[in-house]
Amino acid sequence: MPLPRLIPCLDVANGRVVKGIRFKDLRDVGDPVELGAAYSDAGADELVFLDVVATVESRASALDVAGRVAEQVSIPFTFGGGIRTVEDATAVLEAGADKVSVNSAALARPQLIEELASTLGSQAVVVAIDTIAGRVRSHAATRDAVRDTVAWASECEARGAGELLVTSIDRDGTRNGYDLELLARLRDTVSLPVIASGGAGTAAHVAAALDVSQAALLASILHEQPAWLARLRDELRALGVALRHAA
């Protein structure tokens, strides 16, 4: 198995990195290329950029962001938000992204996953699943998607997804630890790599998530203190987690 991965997640809107609580009260916190490069230098294994507004205007600037990130950063990155068609996804990969992430569009039309996998290859297709109490939420977690989380994960795999990015909504931003029970169920049910998201507060939380998943997404905690990434890597190594030597 490849080494466990740490993946900072940057929310972008209209070409800028933003911070807010559940996509509300967005504040500008910087340039996506600068922040992405800083995380890359601090030892990030991959990056995720999520366009959190995904309006027509924001989509255009998101493509520009993907293109500029690819110029400055030489580690893999995923782009998500507003991708509804194979054409949308192809444009993002041609700009230099390595994977696309789809969420509500896949829930609305699951066949999108097959279409993406057959043109881009499964390895480029991440399905993001927002979940609470074993159920899937859509539209930035504002709506009940009327689906069981584990059943939807299995369906994504059967349709050709390459990775699952699973965010536990009730943990997100709490720093109380990942939903290890759900992650363990997913590990036992699907054979895709899973990126755990929601709840990182300490190195021990991240180590526990990496024990049952292949990667850990780091969102709100890094936005408060970007320098934590380098320290986290040291602490994880001290806990016996085998991370990549980035030099």
Binding site: M1, P2, L3, D45, Q123, S191, L192, A215
Partner: peptide
């Protein structure tokens, strides 16, 4: 293998 696709950094 255990997880396919095989994604990530490996020696």
């Amino acid at each position: 293998g255990d997880r396919v696709p095989r994604i990530g950094w490996a020696s």
